[in-house]
């Protein structure tokens, strides 16, 4: 590909889009150099980047799961990771200050949370309070 992406060069690699029967629109030039569009099923460099990102995410989830089992953090951290969130996003969903959410990651603090606060978290993660409190994930 040295002289502009041609319509017939729009990448058609296998990707995660396939499962959802999803094609994305790309801009490319036709044989007369006129811009047109073509659907693409995916492109390897991008698919690899996405797969890596997902793998990194899964590593974070399982590491957090272990920390919960070891009683080093509260299950909140695990559910945050499971929902691809980070601290600012979780804080924004529950409407609680970031530093307080961070405190709730401490098992000792989490144990003493009242039902109202626990319910807020449970609602965001779409689970019950009982599920939220389990440490045998």
């Amino acid at each position: 590909m040295t002289l502009g992406m041609k319509k017939n060069e729009v990448p058609q690699d296998k990707s995660n889009l396939e499962s959802a029967n999803f094609k994305e629109l790309c801009y490319a030039v036709d044989e007369n150099g006129e811009y047109t569009t073509e659907l693409s099923t995916g492109w390897n460099p991008k698919t690899i980047a996405l797969n890596n990102a997902i793998e990194a995410l899964n590593e974070r989830i399982s590491a957090s799961k272990q920390r919960v089992k070891d009683l080093k953090v509260s299950p909140l951290e695990y559910y945050m990771e499971l929902h691809k969130m980070d601290l600012p996003i979780l804080a924004s969903y529950v409407g609680i200050w970031k530093w307080r959410v961070k405190r709730h990651f401490r098992p000792g603090v989490f144990k003493n949370l009242n039902n109202k606060t626990l319910q807020k978290y449970a609602d965001v993660f779409d689970i019950t309070i009982e599920e939220l409190q389990r440490t045998d994930l």
Binding site: Y27, Y35, L50, A53
Partner: peptide, 22 residues
């Protein structure tokens, strides 16, 4: 991980390819 994110932003759904340059 950082490098991958730069490429993802460049080629994510909705860029039309080549970081909107096309």
């Amino acid at each position: 991980h950082y490098l991958g994110q730069i490429v993802r932003m460049q080629e994510e759904i909705g860029t039309g390819g080549g970081g909107f340059r096309y």
